[in-house]
Write a protein that binds this DNA or RNA. Structure first.
Length: 507
RNA sequence: GGAGCGUUCGACUAAGGGUUAGGUCACCUCCCUUUCACGGAGGUAAUACGGGUUCGAAUCCCGUACGCUCUACCA
């Protein structure tokens, strides 16, 4: 790189940040950090009708949770601000004027109604060379008419004048050479009637002013790339233009098409990074964070969706990702989102994460379930016992709640079919013998005691283990029975046995 | 309709002229575990189609099909 790498993520603050958005951020971030460059957050809030309060803060919070904090943003300042496009209005006007003066853009006075009508009349209408002269603009109208309209403050937009015949060719880092015959593209609006720029003008101007060296965005932008390239040529020169990369899309798991919020609701998985509540509808959409994902796992999973380092390695820390990332190894085709695989990544990361750190992360989940944790050290011990069987942080609740409170229900139905009087007698004796053990016996001693007693009662330990488990846990799952007893200790164990015995005899 | 982009197991992908087309998730079987998991060992399963080029093609070329994206004074 001849100059310092600068990349940007430029979302519009219209709602929650979904998978595709986060992955775009991630690839930007990885690329920047791999090259020792800077990552900028720019807020594209030029559409006042779609602005949603709180969305900008949400984006920043999400980036922080993911560990993808920008070097420059509306909040963290920087030398190229402001970082909100709504605050840069005057800048765009100036460049739009320049384009007009150079003859690369023109005023258009058509009202939205005019356009709607025209679209109805002309099938596949495009505001371009073919119909430009039939419309109301500074090319079709006489100079005096135009200045008259302008003088009267007639609402108008500024449109780019696409050349009649020109082939736009550029090299996309992921896709290679891409060519467009511009005769098929229309005269896009650059500056709206309210004076705000459209995306097309704003990206080009801001990327230039913010010295962006590499511009990455979703594949959905590819068809409008020629407009941007033309603008670069007219305004700043192609030699200043950033290198482009159009990222593949993240698709629905079933069928095809872009993954949407609806798919998540329908199929029962998150699509947004974090919980998002719409301020107007008050509707909350669940996020990966609240669903129980570790940010490391979320990032790891997203990185592997469309990229790999060429080896079989799948679990990467962010540092490893930064070191290994290479945009040229990004896939061209879209990737279907697979929630099962996402959970597998999370499970791997749970296994990898220190129990103390998990304890901190888990606390809010337990709080939410109103499960009281009296001792942190006890929580850490329990985490060690159950972490292997948890895919999500929320799994810890079901996997470990019985360590903190007696199970609400006992699955006696699973015990009853093979229940008999001599087993009842055994458990009564077991409670008794546990009572006689002093202090906090270890799992191995508890097991020895249990087996001796079973032998004395002439019952196979195997026939007794499952009922005992159910008495303690409530159902057929969890770590080793004697590990559980060691953890919850004798008094609680006896209480649970006795309680279950009552339930069993009181059928 | 037009333009652009894409297409390897069910999913994510490796293999950039020569491999029994590999790995991971999911699924199935077995082992471990007197539970559920974890772990271990196996298994099922793919180059969209048709033409070239070549001694040899998943890989290069052409066509076809299919899919997706865009086609707003939204991004």
């Amino acid at each position: 790189m001849d100059s310092k790498v600068r990349v940007r993520f430029a979302p519009s603050p219209t709602g929650g940040l979904h998978l595709g958005g986060v992955r775009t951020v991630l690839f930007n971030y990885l690329f920047a950090k791999h090259h020792g460059g800077e990552f900028i957050l720019r807020i594209e809030d030029t559409d006042q009708t779609r602005f949603v309060a709180g969305a900008e803060q949400y984006i920043i919070d999400t980036l922080n949770w993911c560990g993808l904090t920008p070097d420059e943003s509306p909040l963290h300042g920087g030398a190229y601000g402001p970082y909100r496009q709504s605050e840069r209005k005057a800048i765009y006007t100036q460049y739009a004027q320049t384009l007009i003066e150079k003859g690369f853009a023109y005023y258009a006075f058509d009202t939205p109604q005019d356009l709607e009508e025209k679209r109805k009349q002309v099938p596949n209408f495009q505001y371009s060379r073919a119909h430009r002269m039939e419309m109301k603009n500074s090319i079709s109208l006489s100079e005096s008419e135009v200045s008259e309209l302008l003088k009267k403050n007639t609402p108008h937009v500024i449109r780019i004048k696409i050349p009649d015949e020109e082939e736009v060719v550029f090299t996309d880092i992921i896709r290679g050479e891409v060519r467009f015959d511009v005769s098929t593209v229309d005269d896009k609006v650059l500056l709206k009637a309210d004076g705000m720029p459209t995306y097309h003008l704003a990206v080009v101007v801001d990327d230039y002013l913010m010295k962006i060296t590499h511009a990455f965005r979703g594949e959905e932008w590819l068809p409008s790339a020629p407009v941007h390239i033309l603008l670069w040529k007219y305004l700043f020169g192609l030699d200043k233009m950033p290198k482009w990369a159009h990222l593949p899309l993240i698709l629905k798991p079933e069928g095809s098409g872009k993954l949407s919020k609806r798919d998540g609701e329908r199929l029962g998985f998150p699509v947004f990074a974090m919980d998002w509540s719409d301020p107007t509808t008050k509707e909350t959409t669940v996020g990966f964070k609240e669903k129980g994902f570790l940010p490391e796992a979320f990032i790891n999973f997203l990185a592997m969706l469309g990229w790999n380092d060429g080896s079989d390695k799948e679990i990467f820390t962010i540092e490893e990702l930064i070191a290994a990332f290479d945009l040229e190894r990004v896939h061209k085709g879209g990737a279907k989102f697979d929630y099962e695989k996402a959970k597998w990544f999370n499970q791997e990361w749970i296994k990898k994460t220190d129990n103390k750190i998990l304890a901190d992360l888990l606390q809010p989940f337990f709080d939410q379930e109103k499960i009281e944790i009296h001792e942190r050290s006890y929580l850490i011990k329990v985490i060690g016992l159950v972490k292997d069987r948890c895919h999500l942080l929320t799994d810890f609740i079901t996997q470990s709640s019985f360590f903190f409170t007696a199970p609400a229900t006992i699955d006696t139905a699973a015990i009853l079919p093979k229940w008999e009087e001599k087993k009842h007698a055994f458990f009564t004796a077991l409670a008794q013998s546990f009572q006689e053990m002093s202090g906090k016996p270890l799992a191995a001693d508890l097991e020895a005691n249990f087996k001796t007693l079973a032998a004395a009662h002439e019952i196979k330990p195997g026939d007794l283990l499952l009922p005992l488990r159910i008495m303690l846990v409530g159902s057929k799952f969890g770590p080793g029975v004697f590990d559980i007893i060691e953890a919850i200790e004798i008094p609680d164990t006896i209480k649970r046995i006795e309680h279950s015995l009552q339930l069993l005899s009181g059928k």
